[in-house]
């Protein structure tokens, strides 16, 4: 429940400067929670996990300056995703799972650890899931409460259409249509950020 450390202000300013675009916002929105969860799973304290997040994003942001387009090369977003994956696995994958680190040297210690391929697949899984959650958050505001509830109760909670229709006082047809609309939009939104988890 802690806010990011203060230096995060700089990061946010930087992010704004560098991207001014949806890609970076998306990117941060999706990767931040992933990095946090993965770091915590590795036994890092909350403050250290936040520190790892910051290190990762500062490092990614810095490498943005190295990017320039090569004809036939990857577009910015794909490139960004690759850099992020490398940075994250470097930060997290090279440490032993049973040790918790503290202090400012945590990244150095992490970096000193051997690579762990398992981190890659964990990261892919996390990204795949997070981007669906992210997409759902993104599109939530595009639908009214009724439409969203129709989707959530039927598609996620698995309640029968008729029950949902009754409880929302809407026709079954409206529930069918609402569910279709939300899911179609969700898939579309997920597709927009698919670059984040497609393997090279």
């Amino acid at each position: 429940m802690t806010m990011f450390p203060e230096t995060n202000e700089t990061l946010i300013a930087r992010v704004k400067d560098l991207g001014d675009g949806a890609s970076w916002t998306e990117f941060v929105g999706i990767y931040q929670p992933i990095v946090y969860r993965m770091a915590r799973r590795r036994g890092l304290q909350e403050a250290d996990a936040l520190d790892v997040i910051q290190q990762v994003f500062v490092s990614v942001a810095k490498s943005i300056d190295d990017w320039y387009p090569i004809s036939g090369g990857p577009p910015f977003r794909a490139w960004l995703a690759t850099i992020a994956r490398n940075t994250i696995t470097n930060a997290l994958g090279r440490r032993r799972h049973d040790l918790a680190f503290g202090g400012s040297s945590v990244i150095e210690q992490l970096n000193a650890q051997p690579d762990n391929r398992a981190t890659w697949s964990e990261l892919y899984r996390e990204v795949q899931q997070q981007q669906v959650v992210w997409a759902a958050e993104q599109i939530r505001h595009e639908f009214s409460d009724d439409v969203w509830a129709s989707f959530q109760m039927t598609a996620i909670q698995g309640l029968p259409i008729a029950d949902v229709a009754r409880s929302l006082r809407r026709s079954a047809g409206a529930i069918y249509v609402a569910r279709y609309r939300v899911i179609a939009r969700l898939k579309e939104k997920v597709q927009e950020v698919s670059y984040l988890w497609e393997k090279e």
Binding site: M1, P33, Q128, V132, V133, Q152, A155
Partner: peptide, 28 residues
């Protein structure tokens, strides 16, 4: 891909559910 993710993570329900840079105890 969609359902498992939304099952195991919090599916947003009400409006105003933007990630704010804070995490709960489970890391969500």
């Amino acid at each position: 891909s969609c359902l498992p993710a939304l099952h195991s993570h919090n599916c947003p329900s009400d409006h105003g559910s933007e990630f704010t840079g804070e995490y709960d105890q489970e890391g969500y």
